[in-house]
Simulated assay, not measured.
Amino acid sequence: MPTSVPHATTTAVVAHGANDLRVERIERGEPAPGEAVVAVAYGGVCGSDLHYWRDGAVGESILRAPMVLGHEIVGVVARPAADGSGPAAGTPVAVHPATRHPTEVRFPADRPNLSPGVGYLGSAARGPHTPGAFAGEVNLRASMLRALPADLDLRTAALAEPASVAWHAVDRAGSVAGKRVLVVGAGPIGALAVAVAHRGGAAEIVAVDVYEHPLSIATAVGATRTLHAGEAAEIAAVDADVVVESSGTQQGLASAIRGATRGGTVVLVGMLPTGDQPVPISLAITRELTLTGSLRFNDEIDAVLASLTDGSLVVDPIVTHTFPVADALRAFTVAADPSVSGKVLLDFRER
């Protein structure tokens, strides 16, 4: 188990700019009264982390100062919050990485993920940036912490955050029980969407990708059939009730629209580049498709953790690599190659 260190510095993974990733010692600082000190066990490398590393930006969120990366983390409470809130010391926890801030912009009260006032760990969307949690120890609001059952392995629980993103995306289409589901893009989020749809009772799940490796992972977590992204006619013939577009590409969105049945639903969870996208929108009109966006998640993490614990949500095959934090650059390099990797984890337990 991770343990607290007796000083206020810690090893962290920091993006200083495009192609400038460093593993370095940083000041942890003292926690606020409502914050706990969490000794991080595992951190999952997300697509946004890769963009900050390679591009120095994620869409309009531009890196303007060095920033600790990471928002997919699990660990153990090393020091509980001084105000008595949150889990006790020694409790294994997953982390909900969002913090709500006041805003005057309108959004549905029951969908706080749409609030522009939400801060996210490891995000350059706001100034100053919100530091992430790829560090040996981090100070986190007690309200972010979700106590884990003793029989839920930390390595499995490390997928709770991205699985919540996938859960939210599948939920945006309503029930998938007995339906045919098409998932375009079988990277970690796509594979997790397959797993969630499988748990939800989908009758058929077809996964699409450009590489064989992610398709094999999708099969392991519930896909009943796989197609190569270049098989345009076969994808169009899927005739899916629900399509989850998780590739974040123009070609993927076009395939998603063509692969949907008349009156079907297409959920867009893959983040497309900023700006207009050339897609066959006329088909969405003439087939009366429902196109719906999906952004992060709200409280789905609680259902995810319960499903990971009871074994109804199978995610273990999605983790393909684990690297010690000292090898963070190598981990990011592997994670950036979807032909050989699924979810890549950083191990902070030995540092």
Rank of each mutant, 00 (worst) to 15 (best):
A220H: 02
T309D: 04
S85C: 08
G44N: 11
E234M: 04
A306Q: 05
F332R: 02
A191K: 02
D327N: 14
S4D: 04
S164N: 06
L145E: 00
A177W: 10
E60F: 05
T10P: 07
I281N: 09
L148W: 02
S143E: 13
Q251D: 14
W167Y: 15
I281L: 14
A88Q: 11
L283Y: 11
L253C: 12
P338K: 14
G44F: 11
P338Y: 04
R225C: 03
V13F: 03
D327R: 15
P92W: 00
N113Y: 11
G84N: 07
H228V: 07
M1Q: 14
D327C: 04
A240N: 03
T219H: 05
E212A: 15
S341I: 07
V242T: 06
S312H: 10
T320G: 09
E231W: 01
R79I: 02
V165Q: 13
S4P: 09
T249W: 08
Q251I: 03
V242Q: 03
G47I: 09
H168D: 01
A326D: 14
V13E: 05
G44M: 11
V279C: 14
V58M: 15
L121G: 10
P338H: 10
L329K: 08
P102Y: 08
A88R: 12
T290E: 09
A202F: 07
A195I: 09
T224Y: 06
R287G: 07
G117T: 10
E212S: 10
V344T: 15
V267C: 14
E288C: 08
T219C: 00
I235S: 05
A166D: 13
P128A: 01
R262S: 13
A232H: 14
S85M: 06
L305C: 01
D337N: 12
T274W: 13
Y120I: 15
L283M: 14
V304M: 08
G230V: 02
D347Y: 06
L63M: 08
V304R: 00
V76G: 06
R141H: 04
S282D: 09
I281G: 03
S247E: 09
A124L: 03
R25W: 08
Q277L: 15
H213T: 01
G190Q: 07
K343E: 04
L289P: 08
L121N: 09
V315H: 04
P112E: 09
G275I: 07
R349N: 14
P92G: 03
R22K: 13
H213V: 05
W167A: 10
A336F: 01
G59H: 11
V244R: 05
V170T: 13
P87M: 00
A173Y: 10
A39L: 02
E104L: 13
T10C: 10
E161P: 01
L145Q: 00
T91P: 03
T286G: 04
